[in-house]
């Protein structure tokens, strides 16, 4: 009886979803509502409005900068939540001396894996830099560069075995790096207020000013994202 009811409910939900799917416009249809609303304006004026040749970047960092700001804050909040939940177990109780440095990982990564990661590391880092720097002209940008750089840092800390005890950068500096995304947006908001009279507006006057603001945002999102991914990994690995 229960199975029959479950199957019936699934069939009804599936039928409603398929009916909705049938009403969607064909992918790539130029007459679809999504392409006739604001997209036409962005395609026609995006380059002169924002100075960015990549329209995806123009939407993410100029037209819809508030949404991107929200995403950056969400990622930052995720790291903060993981730290709050996992930190008490990892930190030594107050009043006691720090625990002895943790021994080397029980299973050392194979020399082949370590060698390949070391060999690939500079190329991955160069690719991340290219994706960040050319985000305004090619597909890519801060988020993509941040996750590529973050994945590289995680890979390296898997083979190098650095832990929370011997951090690469001092803890205070790491906190600032992890907050780089929201901080960059705060700076861009102030610049926008002063230069364009609107929060997150792009200053129109010096031609390089808009590029500088976009690059600042990309840098903040990228470095902040990489630091947050590494922080998540280190927090979850613990001791």
């Amino acid at each position: 009886m229960r199975r029959l009811l479950t199957a019936l409910a699934l069939a009804i939900v599936g039928a409603v979803m398929l009916a909705g799917l049938a009403g969607l416009p064909r992918p790539g249809d130029p007459a679809a509502p999504v392409h006739t609303h604001v997209a036409a304006h962005i395609v026609a004026h995006g380059v002169e409005d924002t100075g960015s040749r990549n329209l995806v970047t123009a939407v993410l960092l100029a037209y819809r900068a508030y949404d991107t700001f929200g995403e950056v804050v969400v990622i930052f909040a995720a790291l903060a939540a993981v730290m709050v939940v996992l930190a008490p177990a990892a930190a030594p109780p107050p009043g006691k001396t720090a625990p002895p440095p943790s021994p080397a990982p029980a299973v050392a990564p194979s020399p082949v894996v370590g060698f390949v990661i070391r060999l690939l590391a500079p190329f991955i880092a160069a690719f991340a830099a290219l994706v960040l720097w050319h985000g305004e002209a090619l597909p890519g940008g801060g988020f993509q560069a941040g996750v590529i750089l973050g994945a590289l840092l995680v890979l390296l800390s898997v083979v190098m075995g650095r832990g929370l005890e011997q951090p690469l950068v001092p803890a205070a500096a790491a906190r600032w790096l992890q907050a780089a995304g929201p901080l960059a947006f705060a700076a861009a908001m102030l610049i926008g207020l002063a230069g364009a009279g609107a929060v997150l507006g792009l200053p129109a006057e010096p031609a390089w000013g808009r590029h500088a603001v976009l690059l600042l945002l990309e840098l903040g999102i990228g470095l902040g994202g990489a630091a947050i991914i590494l922080g998540l990994y280190l927090q979850m690995r613990g001791h």
């Binding site: 995806v56 994706v131 597909p139 890519g140 940008g141 988020f143 993509q144 996750v147 590529i148 973050g150 994945a151 995680v154 898997v158 991914i229 998540l232 990994y233």
Partner: peptide, 16 residues
């Protein structure tokens, strides 16, 4: 751009 994010986040970071 989405493909790059999917490969790095979906296949890499979340798996780890």
């Amino acid at each position: 751009d989405v493909a790059m994010t999917e490969a790095a986040v979906g296949a890499g970071v979340t798996t780890i």
